[in-house]
Amino acid sequence: MIINNLKLIREKKKISQSELAALLEVSRQTINGIEKNKYNASLQLALKIAYYLNTPLEDIFQWQ
């Protein structure tokens, strides 16, 4: 199981879903879906999320 901390980290950094989506060149709905565990981010997208949030990938998506 993967624990998804994207919403928590994004909100801590005061970045909206729309802002993050624009940086990543995806839709806001994609970010929303990832945060609600409706969609799994591809490895490429997960790495981009970590880069733009300046946060280690394993802090955003944790295996349990």
Score class of each variant (00 low, 15 high):
residue 1 M to W: 08
residue 1 M to Q: 10
residue 1 M to C: 14
residue 1 M to H: 10
residue 1 M to A: 10
residue 1 M to K: 11
residue 2 I to N: 06
residue 2 I to Y: 12
residue 2 I to E: 05
residue 2 I to Q: 07
residue 2 I to F: 12
residue 2 I to V: 13
residue 3 I to T: 13
residue 3 I to R: 09
residue 3 I to V: 14
residue 3 I to N: 09
residue 4 N to H: 04
residue 5 N to V: 05
residue 5 N to H: 08
residue 5 N to K: 06
residue 5 N to Q: 05
residue 5 N to T: 03
residue 5 N to A: 05
residue 5 N to D: 04
residue 6 L to K: 01
residue 6 L to T: 02
residue 6 L to C: 08
residue 6 L to M: 08
residue 6 L to F: 00
residue 6 L to E: 01
residue 6 L to H: 01
residue 7 K to V: 06
residue 7 K to Q: 13
residue 7 K to A: 12
residue 7 K to E: 09
residue 7 K to S: 08
residue 7 K to C: 09
residue 7 K to W: 04
residue 7 K to Y: 04
residue 8 L to F: 10
residue 8 L to P: 08
residue 8 L to V: 15
residue 8 L to K: 15
residue 8 L to H: 14
residue 9 I to T: 05
residue 9 I to S: 02
residue 9 I to Y: 09
residue 9 I to Q: 04
residue 9 I to C: 08
residue 10 R to T: 03
residue 10 R to M: 07
residue 10 R to G: 03
residue 11 E to N: 08
residue 11 E to D: 08
residue 11 E to T: 11
residue 11 E to A: 08
residue 11 E to K: 10
residue 11 E to G: 05
residue 11 E to V: 10
residue 12 K to S: 15
residue 13 K to T: 06
residue 13 K to Q: 12
residue 14 K to I: 04
residue 14 K to P: 02
residue 14 K to W: 04
residue 14 K to Q: 12
residue 15 I to W: 05
residue 15 I to E: 00
residue 16 S to W: 05
residue 16 S to A: 06
residue 16 S to T: 13
residue 16 S to F: 07
residue 16 S to K: 09
residue 17 Q to P: 04
residue 17 Q to M: 09
residue 17 Q to L: 10
residue 17 Q to G: 03
residue 17 Q to K: 06
residue 17 Q to V: 13
residue 17 Q to W: 03
residue 17 Q to C: 03
residue 17 Q to R: 08
residue 18 S to E: 13
residue 18 S to Y: 10
residue 18 S to Q: 13
residue 18 S to D: 12
residue 18 S to C: 11
residue 19 E to D: 11
residue 19 E to A: 14
residue 19 E to G: 10
residue 19 E to N: 10
residue 20 L to V: 02
residue 20 L to N: 00
residue 20 L to H: 00
residue 20 L to P: 00
residue 21 A to K: 02
residue 21 A to H: 02
residue 21 A to R: 02
residue 21 A to V: 04
residue 21 A to L: 02
residue 21 A to F: 02
residue 21 A to I: 03
residue 22 A to P: 00
residue 22 A to K: 13
residue 22 A to V: 11
residue 22 A to D: 12
residue 22 A to N: 13
residue 22 A to E: 11
residue 22 A to R: 14
residue 22 A to M: 12
residue 23 L to P: 00
residue 23 L to T: 07
residue 23 L to F: 14
residue 23 L to Y: 14
residue 24 L to W: 01
residue 24 L to S: 04
residue 24 L to Y: 00
residue 24 L to V: 15
residue 24 L to Q: 00
residue 24 L to G: 01
residue 24 L to E: 00
residue 25 E to H: 15
residue 25 E to T: 08
residue 25 E to S: 12
residue 25 E to L: 10
residue 25 E to W: 05
residue 25 E to D: 14
residue 25 E to M: 13
residue 25 E to A: 11
residue 26 V to A: 02
residue 26 V to T: 06
residue 27 S to F: 03
residue 27 S to N: 09
residue 27 S to A: 06
residue 27 S to K: 08
residue 27 S to L: 03
residue 27 S to D: 13
residue 27 S to M: 03
residue 28 R to N: 07
residue 28 R to P: 15
residue 28 R to Y: 09
residue 28 R to L: 15
residue 29 Q to A: 14
residue 29 Q to L: 09
residue 29 Q to T: 12
residue 29 Q to S: 13
residue 29 Q to I: 09
residue 29 Q to H: 14
residue 29 Q to G: 11
residue 29 Q to F: 07
residue 30 T to F: 13
residue 30 T to P: 00
residue 30 T to M: 13
residue 30 T to C: 15
residue 30 T to A: 08
residue 30 T to Y: 15
residue 31 I to S: 01
residue 31 I to T: 01
residue 31 I to R: 01
residue 31 I to K: 01
residue 31 I to Y: 04
residue 32 N to K: 14
residue 32 N to Q: 15
residue 32 N to R: 15
residue 32 N to W: 08
residue 32 N to Y: 09
residue 32 N to P: 01
residue 33 G to L: 15
residue 33 G to T: 07
residue 33 G to P: 01
residue 33 G to Q: 15
residue 33 G to F: 13
residue 33 G to Y: 13
residue 34 I to Y: 02
residue 34 I to T: 02
residue 35 E to H: 02
residue 35 E to Q: 02
residue 35 E to S: 02
residue 35 E to C: 05
residue 35 E to R: 02
residue 35 E to N: 01
residue 36 K to G: 10
residue 36 K to I: 10
residue 36 K to S: 14
residue 36 K to H: 13
residue 38 K to Q: 14
residue 38 K to H: 12
residue 38 K to N: 09
residue 38 K to V: 13
residue 38 K to R: 12
residue 38 K to L: 13
residue 38 K to P: 05
residue 38 K to C: 13
residue 38 K to G: 07
residue 39 Y to R: 13
residue 39 Y to I: 15
residue 39 Y to V: 15
residue 40 N to S: 14
residue 40 N to R: 15
residue 40 N to Y: 12
residue 41 A to S: 06
residue 41 A to W: 06
residue 41 A to I: 15
residue 41 A to G: 05
residue 41 A to N: 02
residue 42 S to V: 05
residue 42 S to T: 12
residue 42 S to P: 14
residue 42 S to K: 05
residue 42 S to H: 06
residue 43 L to N: 06
residue 43 L to S: 06
residue 43 L to R: 11
residue 44 Q to C: 13
residue 44 Q to Y: 12
residue 44 Q to I: 10
residue 44 Q to F: 11
residue 45 L to I: 09
residue 45 L to M: 10
residue 46 A to E: 03
residue 46 A to M: 14
residue 47 L to W: 07
residue 47 L to C: 15
residue 47 L to S: 10
residue 47 L to N: 09
residue 47 L to K: 12
residue 47 L to Q: 13
residue 47 L to Y: 09
residue 48 K to C: 08
residue 48 K to N: 07
residue 48 K to D: 05
residue 48 K to Y: 04
residue 49 I to K: 00
residue 49 I to W: 01
residue 49 I to C: 03
residue 50 A to I: 03
residue 50 A to L: 03
residue 50 A to T: 03
residue 50 A to H: 02
residue 50 A to E: 03
residue 50 A to S: 11
residue 51 Y to L: 10
residue 51 Y to F: 13
residue 51 Y to C: 10
residue 51 Y to H: 11
residue 51 Y to V: 08
residue 52 Y to G: 03
residue 52 Y to V: 15
residue 52 Y to P: 00
residue 52 Y to W: 11
residue 52 Y to C: 08
residue 53 L to W: 03
residue 53 L to I: 03
residue 53 L to N: 00
residue 53 L to T: 03
residue 54 N to S: 11
residue 54 N to Y: 05
residue 54 N to G: 12
residue 55 T to M: 07
residue 55 T to C: 07
residue 55 T to P: 01
residue 55 T to N: 02
residue 56 P to V: 05
residue 56 P to K: 10
residue 56 P to M: 05
residue 57 L to W: 05
residue 57 L to I: 11
residue 57 L to M: 11
residue 57 L to R: 02
residue 58 E to N: 12
residue 58 E to K: 13
residue 58 E to R: 11
residue 58 E to F: 10
residue 58 E to Q: 11
residue 58 E to D: 12
residue 59 D to K: 10
residue 59 D to T: 08
residue 59 D to L: 11
residue 59 D to V: 09
residue 59 D to E: 14
residue 60 I to D: 01
residue 60 I to P: 00
residue 60 I to E: 01
residue 60 I to R: 00
residue 61 F to Q: 01
residue 61 F to W: 09
residue 61 F to A: 02
residue 62 Q to V: 13
residue 62 Q to D: 07
residue 62 Q to P: 12
residue 62 Q to E: 09
residue 62 Q to W: 10
residue 62 Q to T: 10
residue 62 Q to L: 08
residue 63 W to R: 06
residue 63 W to C: 09
residue 63 W to Y: 09
residue 64 Q to D: 14
residue 64 Q to C: 10
residue 64 Q to K: 12
residue 64 Q to T: 11
residue 64 Q to W: 07
residue 64 Q to P: 13
